[in-house]
C-alpha cells in the first residue's frame, strides 16, 4: 500500500471515483487547470477534461446550486468550496434546497452530491481561512456531515460519500492535509458513513474528537499514558448521523468523557455530544463531560495557537474529570 498524505488521499479518491463513474463531476473555483489551491484536484482536469472538471465562475451559491440541478438530473457532482469560511453565500442553497429536496418533493427528487471543503485553523489564515463552522450544518436535517482525520479514512469515506444517495458535506482538516500520512489502499474501497473509529482503547476516560482535533486527542492520550492514565480515543468521523452506539459503549465503560472541538464553544457540536452522553449514560458517569473548544470569538490571526485546543488543554480537562 502506498503511503499518502491526507490531501493526496482526497485526490486519489476523486481519481478513483471519476475513473469508475462518468456521472461524477468535480466543480468549483480553481479546481480545474490549477488543480485546486491545495492541489486536492490535481491531474483531474488533464485526465477527465473540462466538461467533468469544471472551473466555475466565482460564486459559491452558483457552485452548490447548479450542482444540485446536476444531481437532480442524475449526475454525482462533487463541488468544492475553496475554504469553509467562503461557504456562506451558498448557505441558503445548502440548508434550504440541497438538504430539503428529497423531503419536500416526497422522495421524487434526490440530491446525491458531496460538498468538499477544507475547514479549520492552524495554517495562519486569520478569520476567513480558519473557520470550523460544522455546527451550522449539523443543525440542518437532510445533510450528512463527514469529517475524516486520517488519509486511509479520507479516501474510504469520500468514496462512500460519492456513492451515497444523500447530500454529504465532507469537511477536510486542512491543518493536517500534509502533516499526517499513512498507508492507503489502492483502488476502490469504502469506509462506512455513520460509524466512529475506536482509535485507541483505554479504561479511565474517553476522548472524543474529529478531524484535526483527533490528532490533538491522540497526543493527549499518549501523554496521559505516561502519567498512568488510560484514555480511550474515539475518532467520530461522521457528525450526522453520529455513532451513538460506540460513544455509549465507551463512556459506559470509562465513566468519563472529554470532547475536543476547535469551533467556538457555544452551541458547538461538542454540546450535542455532551447532551447525548448525559441523557444516555448518566448512571455510568463518574464526572460531567468536559469540553475543550475554541473560544466564542472570531478566529484570531497571531494568537491562533492559543485559540486552538492543545494536548495540554485536553490533559487539563482529563484531570478535571479524574478529580471531580
Amino acid at each position: 500500500m502506498p503511503e499518502m498524505t491526507l490531501v493526496d488521499s482526497v485526490n486519489d479518491a476523486l481519481h478513483t471515483a471519476m475513473d469508475e463513474d462518468d456521472r461524477v463531476v468535480v466543480m468549483g473555483e480553481d479546481v480545474g487547470v490549477n488543480g485546486g489551491v491545495f492541489r486536492a484536484t490535481e491531474g483531474l482536469h488533464d485526465s477527465y477534461g473540462e466538461e467533468r472538471v469544471i472551473d466555475t465562475p466565482l460564486a459559491e451559491a452558483g457552485i452548490v446550486g447548479t450542482a444540485l440541478g446536476m444531481a437532480m438530473y442524475g449526475l454525482r457532482p462533487v463541488p468544492e468550496i475553496q475554504f469553509m469560511d467562503f461557504i456562506y453565500p451558498g448557505f441558503d442553497q445548502i440548508v434550504n434546497e440541497i438538504a430539503k429536496l428529497r423531503y419536500r418533493s416526497g422522495d421524487q427528487y434526490e440530491a446525491p452530491m458531496v460538498i468538499r471543503t477544507p475547514y479549520g485553523g492552524g495554517i495562519r489564515g486569520g478569520h476567513y481561512h480558519s473557520q470550523s463552522s460544522e455546527a451550522y450544518f449539523t443543525h440542518t436535517p437532510g445533510l450528512k456531515i463527514v469529517v475524516p482525520s486520517t488519509p486511509q479514512d479520507t479516501k474510504g469515506l469520500l468514496l462512500s460519500a460519492i456513492e451515497d444517495p444523500d447530500p454529504v458535506m465532507f469537511l477536510e482538516p486542512k491543518r493536517v492535509y500534509r502533516a499526517v500520512s499513512d498507508d492507503v489502499p489502492e483502488g476502490h474501497y469504502t469506509e462506512p458513513i455513520g460509524e466512529a473509529r475506536l482509535a485507541r482503547e483505554g479504561e479511565d476516560v474517553t476522548l472524543i474528537a474529529y478531524g484535526a482535533m483527533h490528532h490533538v486527542a491522540m497526543e493527549a492520550a499518549e501523554r496521559a499514558a505516561d502519567e498512568g492514565v488510560s484514555c480511550e480515543v474515539v475518532d467520530l468521523r461522521t457528525l450526522v448521523p453520529f455513532d451513538r452506539e460506540t460513544l455509549e459503549e465507551s463512556v459506559t465503560k470509562t465513566g468519563r468523557a472529554v470532547i475536543v472541538q476547535e469551533a467556538p464553544r457555544t452551541a458547538g457540536f461538542a454540546a450535542e455530544l455532551s447532551a447525548f452522553l448525559h441523557e444516555e449514560c448518566i448512571l455510568h458517569m463518574i464526572a460531567p463531560v468536559q469540553r475543550v473548544t475554541g473560544l466564542d470569538t472570531p478566529f484570531p490571526y497571531t494568537l491562533e495557537e492559543e485559540y486552538l485546543p492543545t494536548p495540554t488543554r485536553v490533559l487539563d480537562a482529563i484531570d478535571e474529570t479524574l478529580t471531580y
Partner: peptide, 14 residues
C-alpha cells in the same frame, strides 16, 4: 434558477 442551469448542464453533458 441555479438548479435549472445545473440540470441543463447535466442534460447537455449526457
Amino acid at each position: 434558477l441555479p438548479h435549472a442551469v445545473g440540470m441543463a448542464y447535466a442534460a447537455d453533458y449526457q
